[in-house]
């Protein structure tokens, strides 16, 4: 048999089966129909909850916007992979140079993306450019806190403005960019002896 004829016949048969099933469903009593519809609604809600929980505990893709990470991330239209599992698993396992997203200490409804500069106990220079603080001013990062900074120092509001931020504010680590190109973010820090 010619494949086209076969496909047409198969489609027609499956359509007939579907119409038959629909007729059968509509001829059922009202209570049964309500039960089936209600159960499907429950299943849909359940699936949405499962997706939400995956995004909350394992990881998600998210759209980035803003000028503060300019050479690394463009100011709009980039999609990145956020890894939340490693932060949930080990909340203090953050290294210098990691890209992180965190809840803004200035506005709880905002999420910001920055690079980690200093870990607890490090001595950091508040602002090497001397614009927001004298370039000789140094600070010790307190216990449980991080020093964060945007890659685009001129257009970033970061620890230079609000000081060290709590590690508890950290939401996720940025692992890769998937749109417009695929890039895996590697830790760029090199240590000098």
């Amino acid at each position: 048999m010619h494949p086209f004829v076969f496909a047409t016949q198969a489609l027609r048969r499956s359509a007939q089966v579907r119409i038959g099933r629909a007729r059968e469903f509509w001829s059922k009593p009202c209570v049964y129909k309500a039960k089936v519809v209600g159960k499907s609604a429950f299943k849909l809600a359940n699936m949405a909850c499962a997706l939400h929980i995956f995004a909350e505990y394992v990881g998600t893709v998210s759209l980035m916007s803003g000028l503060s990470m300019m050479p690394t991330l463009a100011d709009s239209g980039e999609i990145v992979v956020e890894d939340r599992l490693s932060i949930r698993w080990n909340p203090t396992g953050i290294a210098r140079g990691d890209l992180i997203t965190l809840y803004s200490p200035l506005d709880p409804s905002r999420i910001i993306c920055k690079r980690v500069i200093g870990l607890p106990g490090d001595v950091v220079c508040v602002d090497p450019t001397g614009q927001k603080a004298p370039s000789t001013e140094h600070i010790v990062v307190p216990k449980g806190h991080l020093w964060i900074s945007g890659d685009n120092a001129a257009m970033s509001r970061d620890s230079r403005d609000y000081g060290p931020v709590s590690m508890s504010l950290v939401r996720a680590k940025l692992r890769a960019r998937i749109y417009p190109d695929i890039t895996i973010f590697r830790n760029p820090i090199t240590y000098l002896d």
Binding site: P91, T92, P108, K143, G144, H145, S166, S168
Partner: peptide
């Protein structure tokens, strides 16, 4: 809703220890 007021008893993640 970020609805908190003065006088509310709240559970807070410790700023020093995320656990």
């Amino acid at each position: 809703r970020h609805a908190y007021q003065r006088g509310d008893i709240v559970a807070i993640v410790s700023p020093e220890d995320p656990r």
